[in-house]
Design a protein around this nucleic acid. Sequence first.
DNA 1: AGCACGCCGACT
DNA 2: GTCGGCGTGCTC
Length: 696
Amino acid sequence: MAHSDVPEPAESPASEQLELIRTELRRAKARPKPKPMAEGLPVARVVVDKGLSHLDQYFDYAVPARLDEAAQPGVRVRVRFGGRVVKGQGRREGGKLVDGFVVERLAASDFAGPLAPLAQVLSPERVLSPELLRLCRAVADRYAGTLADVLQLAVPPKHNKPESEPKPGTPADVAAPEPGGWTRYADGPSYLRALADGESPRAAWTALPGPGWPDELARAVVAALASGRGALVVLPDGRAVARVDAALDALLGPGRHVALTAELGAEERYRRWLAVSRGAVRAVVGTRAAMFAPVTDLGLLAIWDDGDSSHSEPHAPQPHARDVLLLRAAEAGAAALVGGFAVTVEAAQLLRTGWARPLAAGREEVRRAAPLVRTVGDHDQAGDVAALAARLPSLAWRVARDALAHGPVLVQVPRRGYVPRLACGRCREQARCAHCAGPLEAPDASGPLVCTWCGRPEADWHCRECGSFKLRAQVFGARRTADELGRAFPSVPVRTSGRDGVLVTVSGAPALVVATPGAEPVAEGGYAAALLLDAWVLLGRPDLRAGEEALRRWLSASALVRGAAEGGTVAIVAEPSLRPVQALVRWDPAGYAGMELAERAELGFPPVSRMAAVSGAPAAVQDLLDLARLPEGTDLLGPVAVPVPRGEDRVDRMLLRVAPGRGAALATALKAAQAARLARGKSDPVRVRIDPPDIG
DNA sequence: AGCACGCCGACT
DNA sequence: GTCGGCGTGCTC
């Protein structure tokens, strides 16, 4: 229709019409003119994403006719929020402009009051697709957080330039890849084939040591692309992303995949994100934030080294990349690949429940690829001044000296600054609370031991393993390793890689490379040997995952060493009878994870049980828990005062523990309690953390 | 979170 | 009589 749809007395004389217009004009001067509203679907349901993150609900707005076309579901809008209705008229004024997204267009609102109009459509780009919205909603629920918080993580800030650039075409077909290094795994080729055939196999992948894994991940991505679907790989750091990106370049050529990392800068990152959102690119490799990348028609979600702490998002509601990817895999019916040199307890649980299948190499392959691991007992080098003589026993020294004839030697030293906790002075078992099995600490040197979970004092501790009454504080300071080694091997160059100044690669020439865990450079041709020093420091970390984490770090370093067949050797200075040390010697990360899982199940630890941490001002925490209708059988541990900077108010932490399968109920209950508290105007915040990663 | 409305003490 | 304390409730 050419003219307006508004019914209009077509037969009325022109003079009458003119009079009507004049009256209208007069009225318009008396009050602001009512703007015409969209006719088809005049209501826009909006999620507001800034400033009111506690308000986890949608708000309906009227769509002005001029925004009818632009205000499609998924676009960014600006709305007035918090204004007041002017008495007598159905009009409102004031209010703050806030950003949000149109979630849906409706014929009518169920809100009784007058609707405010959308103020602005920021761009016609539909950045919040229905799938992305569903994902964000699910993540918010799982973590007892708000949709707005998750949206902040999932949708990057707008940049004009990339949006105005021409849209590239749709991606071309991709051929199924050769299996490459996957032939080393019993079920590797069939896994790839299934992916390429459009199936959705889910696997926990125990990667063989060595440099093959980036190419193997890339081949899995290519297989998913070959099925006409998209793929997303999340890795712990930019270095790892660069390696998989390079492998994809080699297999696919440029333009068919993007890397999403923080170091790109906001605009370039948004450009690439848009290419993904628009469906122009369907393969993404990236760091943590890429877990939300809006890949269309997902075929594969993969995560590498899921035990790395950088997969845990620090911003509310602190989702973990592995969980988000698994959620997406389940929702999209896509394949999942959880891989690493180590196997996390969570991955073991996926295997245990049958959700994922193991993807692992046979023993011969492992023996070929893994270095020979030799242990050196650490008997008498407690926490006193670390002299090289004590830290580098003669075996380790000989290993280094012999290997230096054939190439570089990696020396892994723990990072400084771990909190001192307590362990048995004889067998090194961590000192745990007799009541709840939380880790003990000594708040002051002479006072009683106190549980960091439930706060109970422990008057007469003795070791559960060996019965000893002797404790030792696990305090350590390691700094001069490089200097000491330089003096011990004066003719060999010593290089360091750590928090400040990470080396990406080193050449194959003989050198000592001293690195902290996670910062180990890749050596050309592999290291001839690695020394893992002061292993007891990693094992003594005040963390439920100390053993798992120690093993993960040793495996990561050892995986950079040549295989035993090429003379690769690892010397670890640690008590050889300890379980993680044995797992390293046998190169059996899956076996270790399985045992650890069984033990956690028995002791009621996560991830078998699910936990939540609730922290804030003591009264606020209590208040929230009073309001919460917790699932039946919830264990309440604590409260415990968490350490805060001097002069700040006391913060309590309460740990809640529920039986397997009750995690969702726990999150729901805590979320409802948060909402109830806010509704009562209680504004001192209580932080709720689902699956806290750092529970002593 | 802001920002209003609302119902009780010391001021011109 | 009024100005203003911040308790409580709402925001499409």
